[in-house]
Design a protein around this nucleic acid. Structure first.
Length: 659
DNA sequence: ATACATACC
DNA sequence: CACTGGTATGTAT
């Protein structure tokens, strides 16, 4: 309600801004949008088959599985103060994830709230991932219950698999549900898996290696629990095969349940492959999953929501099907468009994805280049079709705690200390991460949130170090509003800016290695930068290199400030001094380097660059020190968007031949 | 670099 | 009674 007003306020402000804009300007926006659109349009790629799978009401489902008395009542997982998930019965009352318990109870007085047991969910998750890995060893988990997979390779191999490899016992609570491991001939590290099964999944008994070997060697059927739960997957037509293994009344040595003579044969096609995967998850965990199948991650993710729970949806791999699908899709379904964006967009009559197109001129004007490009690519149904490598690691870590008004300075300090130490522990146990930036977050009793941060010269993960900074920030805040007592309802401490394995040097190397036609001069200059960095002299001097910048074919003199139009806004740029490889300023009157100033990060200097000439620039000695990577060349401008995708990368001689 | 808002689970 | 907590990211300054 309060938020609503704020959103509305912003919207009206934006509308005014929009109203003040000339027809001509809007027309220009339209042209820009069209240009981008036509370049995006070339990006369709239906060569990969991406699957997104998502467990149904995961935490709640696990708890219901392990405690049948919860199965038919409205329940949720979480604390009194916050719910993580609710089951489908509770959802009928409007009880949702991310809802405080007390509100949930208002909606549903009988709601049972089960405390979360992350350890258990992680264990179950490992089991699930072991299945997923068999379809894509490079599967990318998004969270405990969600993952992207690229099925392309599996589908090729799958054609070679015999029927038996695609045959699985029907689901039954009372009969064996085991299956031979490695059935798909996929190598998977099963060590962790079997142990995970041991502690995490109560209903797959005795899965130890001995038994595993036995059963794999001797038979292919096992059994499990039962009950015609097979009708939980109704809509799915599969090829059924009553391989009446009949006479087999024996028990599975693994789970001690009778073998299930009923089998399901899955086809070699994509949809059956995915059904099979979901079925195997069901067999192993007694939990259901939903999945989406499409040509890229964005579409797959949206599709997995389509037939939830316990269903799947495949979006045909054609431009027409994709566009048709996107046309009426509510923008809220788009990942990244949350409650706020939904409202904002709605205020400009953008409700479904085709409205991204319909109002492209206005959107171009209103949103940043990145956002706008995203909207249009979503409209077209474009998305990444390769799973990004799971590297990097966390970018920040934090601890925060909510409580009921606290204003005593000593108490606050104590809390701050505790949080700092906790965070330090977290950092240490998480790969011994060390960070430079400490952020203090406080929420006043009025619900106003503030963050205050400060960076250290050196990375640390020492509790006292962190506390020193956090406490200082806290003290400042307390002084700052000394008139009032500073009553808080939340305090948090965060560490970020981790020193990874010197990403800066890494990047410089990459840049150098990437140069197709590297100039010797440039390399030697970069080497020098690297050397300086290593000797840690860099920050002493304000001559810190800004990085490689485009050598502009402009005739304006050094020092000129000019404007570049970027996404309908003007961005300030400055022609700066040119430094040669010895570090001296060359005094060319017509310097041709453009230095991007703050806030200009979306401007692509290459698009304005003369493709043949290039050089290295540093910032003048009286400037603020900046790092080379911040404006580092190739990397920076090309990272997220592949060259062609960059709206500002003109079709002309744009990129830097020399680089 | 810092502050804040938004999104997702 | 009462509206989380953790992390990532975009945007503005």
């Amino acid at each position: 309600m309060k938020k609503d007003k704020e959103i509305l306020k912003k919207v009206t402000a934006l509308k005014e801004e929009l109203a003040a804009v000339s027809e001509a300007h809007l027309e220009a926006c339209m042209n820009k949008a069209n240009a981008l659109l036509s370049s995006l349009y070339q990006q369709y790629d239906f060569t990969r088959t991406i699957v997104h799978m998502d467990m149904d009401a995961f935490y709640a489902a696990v708890e219901m599985r392990d405690n049948p008395s919860l199965a038919n009542i409205p329940m949720a997982v979480g604390g009194e103060d916050m719910l993580s998930t609710s089951n489908y019965i509770a959802r009928r009352y409007g009880v949702r994830a991310a809802m405080p318990g007390f509100i949930a109870r208002k909606l549903c007085a009988d709601l049972v709230i089960v405390p979360t047991d992350m350890a258990k969910y992680s264990a179950v998750s490992r089991v699930i991932r072991s299945v997923l890995s068999q379809y894509d060893p490079n599967m990318t988990p998004l969270s405990l219950d969600e993952a992207y997979m690229d099925f392309t390779d599996h589908l090729v191999k799958r054609r070679e698999l015999d029927d038996q490899s695609r045959t699985f016992p029907e689901f039954s609570e009372t009969m064996c549900r085991c299956e031979p491991e490695e059935r798909l001939g996929v190598v998977s590290s099963t060590e962790g898996i079997s142990s995970a099964v041991g502690d995490g999944v109560a209903d797959v008994p005795n899965l130890n290696e001995d038994n595993l070997q036995n059963s794999v060697a001797t038979d292919d059927t096992r059994i499990l629990p039962s009950a015609t739960n097979s009708d939980t997957e109704p809509s799915e037509a599969r090829i059924m095969k009553d391989t009446t293994v009949s006479t087999d009344t024996s028990q599975c040595p693994r789970c001690n349940m009778p073998h299930n003579p009923k089998r399901i044969l899955f086809d070699v096609g994509v949809e059956d492959a995915v059904r099979e995967m979901r079925h195997r998850i069901h067999l192993k965990t007694r939990l259901t999953a939903s999945a989406g199948i499409a040509a890229n991650c964005l579409l797959a993710k949206i599709c997995s929501d389509q037939n939830k729970p316990n269903g799947q949806y495949m979006l045909p791999f054609t431009v027409d099907a994709v566009q048709d699908f996107m046309k009426d899709l509510p923008v809220r379904k788009v990942p990244g468009v949350g409650k706020v964006s939904e409202r904002q967009l709605a205020a400009f009559d953008v409700k479904v994805c085709s409205d991204f197109y319909k109002h492209r001129d206005v959107l171009y004007f209103l949103y940043s280049g990145g956002m706008f490009e995203y909207f249009l690519s979503v409209y077209l149904g474009l998305g990444a079709n390769r799973l990004s490598k799971n590297e990097d690691g966390p970018k920040s870590k934090s601890v925060e705690r909510t409580f009921r008004g606290m204003s005593d300075p000593d108490q606050l300090r104590t809390l701050c200390h505790e949080l700092s130490l906790e965070l330090a522990e977290d950092l240490k146990s998480a790969k011994n991460l060390q960070g430079k930036t400490v952020t203090l977050k406080i929420k006043l009793v009025t619900f106003e949130v503030k963050t205050r941060s400060q960076s250290l010269p050196t990375a640390t993960n020492d509790g006292e170090d962190i506390y020193n900074v956090a406490n200082q920030l806290l003290t400042t805040e307390m002084k700052n509003c000394s008139s009032k007592p500073l009553k808080l309802r939340l305090m948090g401490v965060r560490m970020s800016n981790f020193t990874t394995s010197d990403s800066k040097q890494q990047k410089l190397k990459v840049i150098r290695d990437t140069n197709s036609t590297p100039s010797d001069k440039r390399i030697s200059f970069l080497d020098k930068i690297e050397a300086e960095r290593k000797s840690e002299k860099v920050n002493q001097s304000c001559n810190e290199p800004l990085g490689l910048l485009a050598y502009m074919s402009t005739d304006k003199p050094i020092g000129t400030t000019s404007n570049i139009s970027n996404a309908g806004r003007n961005v300030s740029t400055k022609l700066s001094s040119v430094w040669d490889e010895s570090g001296d300023v060359t005094t060319r009157k017509t310097g041709k380097i453009i230095e991007l100033l703050e806030g200009a990060s979306n401007t692509d200097p290459w698009s304005l660059a003369d493709s043949t000439s290039s050089s290295v620039a540093t910032i003048p000695s009286d400037s603020t020190v900046k790092t080379a990577t911040k404006y580092g060349p190739l990397d920076f401008y090309r990272s997220s968007k592949s060259g062609a995708l960059d709206p500002w990368a003109k079709d002309d001689s744009s990129s830097l031949g020399g680089f």
